[in-house]
């Protein structure tokens, strides 16, 4: 394309592009808060049990499929199916921690990482086997598909996902600030031995952090499933979480949210730049990983993470 022609077309479409950019940024914010929620679950597990959970995406997948099974195959009303899914995810998290992760305490980091990777491929294959590899959609929950907000059409499901995400974040804030279990978890994350000597059951805390993480990830899975349909592509979120948490700092819950939003915005900006100027095709899916490498080289502990100092 000749530069003059390109410039002319660009000038003519100036207004359109701006609107598209705005739409994409809004989209990025909504997707970003969802990333933030999943990243928060990831950080929760890392902070309290020192385990890097590569199977976080599979939690979303399992939550979404279980809810789908309750709603579509057992014909439950939405609230009941949702409630049962939450209970299931909680039990699932506890059992997983007790059976698989508890024997791994004190093992070298490579073993712990590999166990969660093993879980990830196991569950991914298992869900594909049980529920099939095709995309399934939930029954319609809202009557209106989209609403008009500030002159833009936004899908109701998107607004719902944004609201739920904010609600979960507020819930986390309350939980860690005021509830007894939340305080116990913070104490354990700070120093396990001190927490134990104060009468906190570290076993319970470990199990509960997996339970909460699985539960909240399951909710995120259902929300994304409502917007995009349920398929094994959901587990990709579990990989997208890594750029978010590294950007925010691995052990910072605030960092996870900030990182998630930034990655969501970045993805959509990359899509805009790609679609308008570069035409590479799939820049948006790969851009977070370039950012990840750059951050690891410049500032490996992220924006809010604590730098570990090692002594001999």
């Amino acid at each position: 394309m000749a530069p003059a022609k390109g410039l002319g077309r660009h000038y003519r479409d100036g207004n359109m592009n701006f609107e598209l950019l705005f739409q994409l940024l809004l989209n990025g914010l909504i997707v970003g808060t969802l990333y933030g929620v999943v990243a928060m679950c990831f950080v929760l597990i890392y902070k309290s049990t020192q385990i890097v959970n590569f199977a976080q995406g599979e939690f979303l997948l399992i939550g979404a499929w279980v809810c789908y099974a309750f709603l579509v195959e057992m014909h439950m009303p939405f609230w009941l199916g949702f409630l049962f899914t939450l209970l299931f995810m909680m039990a699932f998290g506890i059992v997983l921690q007790m059976v698989v992760l508890r024997p791994m305490i004190g093992e070298p980091i490579i073993s712990v990482i590999m166990v969660t990777i093993g879980l990830s491929i196991f569950f991914q294959a298992a869900t594909k086997w049980i529920f099939g590899a095709t995309t399934a959609t939930y029954p319609q929950v809202f009557e209106t598909r989209s609403v008009n907000l500030l002159g833009m059409q936004i899908e109701t499901a998107y607004i719902m996902s944004f609201v739920i995400s904010l609600f979960i974040m507020a819930g986390f804030y309350w939980f860690f600030k005021y509830s007894k279990l939340g305080l116990a978890m913070r104490a354990t994350a700070f120093d396990q031995q001190v927490a134990q000597s104060l009468g906190i059951s570290v076993k319970t805390v470990f199990a509960m952090s997996w339970a909460i993480s699985a539960l909240v990830s399951g909710v995120a899975g259902i929300v994304i499933g409502m917007v995009n349909g349920v398929s094994s592509a959901l587990s990709v979120i579990g990989i997208k979480v890594f750029p978010a948490v590294i950007l925010g700092g691995l052990d910072s819950i605030i960092g996870a949210i900030v990182g998630g939003v930034i990655i969501g915005l970045l993805e959509n900006t990359a899509e805009f730049v790609d679609g308008q100027y570069l035409h590479w095709g799939n820049l948006f899916s790969i851009a977070p990983f370039y950012v990840l490498i750059i951050i690891l080289c410049i500032k490996p502990y992220g924006l809010f993470g604590t730098k570990d100092i090692e002594r001999i």
């Binding site: 698989v100 073993s111 166990v115 093993g118 196991f122 294959a125």
Partner: peptide, 20 residues
């Protein structure tokens, strides 16, 4: 195909737990 994939995941987990 899925059973094979599951077997790979399971083999890794079981080895790490029982024969690291």
């Amino acid at each position: 195909a899925y059973i094979k994939e599951m077997a790979i995941g399971l083999a890794i987990i079981l080895f790490l737990i029982f024969e690291p």
